[in-house]
Amino acid sequence: MMDGALFFYIFAALAVAGALGMVLNFRNAVAGALSLVGTMVSLGAIYVLLDAYLIGVLQVLVYAGAIVVLFLFVVMLLNLRRESFSAERQRAVKLAAAGLGVLVLLAFLSLLPGAFREAAALPEGFGGYRQVGMALFTDWLLAFEATSLLLLAAMVGAVILAKRDIE
């Protein structure tokens, strides 16, 4: 029982470290993106620990394997200069930090004992590709079809945007 929880804390620490590494890295965006990969893979492991097997694999496959690679691809293609804080931004930093600090504090209230009820018992095969697939193609079929339209629109949009010259 304790092993799973131990793994959760290890991966949680890795995820937070990776996120901080991305946000606080002002020197180069490639190192930031690589550190984001650490967060994505750790989150995939946490999903598996939370019995979301299909989501965990898709997290690694789509986020770590495709989306962050796209970021890296663009960062490597474009030459980036080192950025600096402007005065306007510094004010924004203080405001943002204060507001989000309050948010995180509120979230930590959930750590108080008794904030959540006990987790429900899991049905057989919960989170596997069979169950999620059944739910996706019966109850949520319309949403699934709608995402295909979204993807098509995004694909066309990306091609048009990145094309050099359009007749």
């Binding site: 694999v57 496959l61 770590a64 690679v69 890296l72 490597m76 596997g128």
Partner: peptide
């Protein structure tokens, strides 16, 4: 594991990073 083939695909997608990191 029940999702063995998905595991192979996911691990294969991580193999990209070795090449990307080395070249950059």
């Amino acid at each position: 594991i029940d999702w063995g083939m998905l595991y192979i695909l996911a691990v294969g997608s991580l193999a990209t990073y070795g090449a990307v990191m080395a070249g950059w």
